[in-house]
Design a binder for these strands. Structure first.
Length: 275
DNA sequence: ATCAGCACCTGTTGGC
DNA sequence: TGCCAACAGGTGCTGA
């Protein structure tokens, strides 16, 4: 479900709402929600939340004592804050049936993890979280340069769109924003990643940053399940240039948006504007 | 070392 | 209404 802008929106919302809270109780309704490599979640009891951030597509809940609870929402995960009486919904989200884990705080408020498809995972870590999670560079990291991209792309024969989905190099880009960024960069999804020119690489980096930042400003994109920590939908789905717009006119040339499948994922592009 | 394909799950939608 | 296939913001493993 969520890509970088959605995870960023969720993390910011959670930061404002749960920072400083002390954990009183942890309940796991679906055991496989806890990653096999996780420290036992019973360790959470008594810890205080010092902040919430984002690492790639992980929501990183920082805890006292140098621990981090990393939550990956995968396709349909939701993290919602509420109370035991008034559940998590400002908009009817948080179906009890899909509650997989629940953290109760000392003040009786609740942070609950919902996930219809059961793909989402939580993992408690200590120490160098980025290394343990194996996530790549963040596209919004100002330190990241077009030269870094050149190095990462060198020799890759895989389609650029497929390369963008690999979280070990750049992390945070998913199926929607890969198509969107390639449109703005004027690059066809199938172009071999290692064959991009210097101009194309810098256009790609610029387009990625532009589309990710705009999406964050809109609170992310909601197709079906995505909501932020208050249960609110994002608004960026109305701004898509190509994603989900099969047959509709390209915003630049009016030609029809096309759909192909790459690595079993729908991919949208304009055959005139993207070369 | 890469890379394509399937596995993991459930819910929704559209065709017949 | 029912049934079935296709599809969905993701990633990890397998085997060529």
């Amino acid at each position: 479900m969520p890509e970088l802008p959605e995870v960023e929106t969720i993390a910011r919302g959670l930061h404002a709402r749960v920072r400083g809270k002390r954990i009183a109780k942890v309940h796991i309704a679906w055991q496989r929600t806890v990653d096999a490599r996780s420290l036992p979640l019973s360790e959470l009891v008594g810890k205080q939340i010092t902040g919430v951030g984002r690492i790639g597509k992980y929501v990183a809940i920082q805890l006292s004592g140098g621990f981090t609870l990393a939550v990956h929402l995968r396709m349909t995960g939701q993290l919602l804050v509420g109370s035991l009486e008034r559940r998590y919904d400002s908009s009817g989200t948080g179906d009890r049936k899909h509650e997989r884990a629940r953290i109760t705080f000392a003040d009786a408020s609740v942070l609950a993890f919902f996930d219809a498809r059961k793909f989402g995972r939580m993992r408690l870590l200590h120490g160098d979280v980025v290394a343990q999670l194996g996530v790549g560079r963040d596209p919004l990291d100002p330190q990241l340069t077009a030269d870094d991209l050149k190095e990462m792309l060198a020799g890759r024969r895989t389609p650029t769109k497929v390369w963008l989905l690999d979280q070990h190099r750049l992390s945070g880009i998913g199926n929607i924003y890969a198509s969107e960024a390639l449109f703005y960069a004027g690059i066809r999804p199938r172009r071999a990643a290692g064959k991009l020119t210097a101009i194309e690489r810098s256009a790609l980096l610029k387009s990625l940053r532009r589309v990710l930042r705009r999406a964050i400003r809109f609170g992310g994109s909601s197709l079906n399940d995505y909501v932020d920590s208050e249960g609110k939908q994002g608004g960026f789905q109305k701004q898509f240039a190509v994603y989900g717009r099969l047959g509709l006119p390209c915003l630049q040339c009016r030609g029809p948006v096309r759909r192909i499948v790459l690595a079993q994922r729908s991919t949208f592009y304009c055959s005139t504007c993207q070369r």
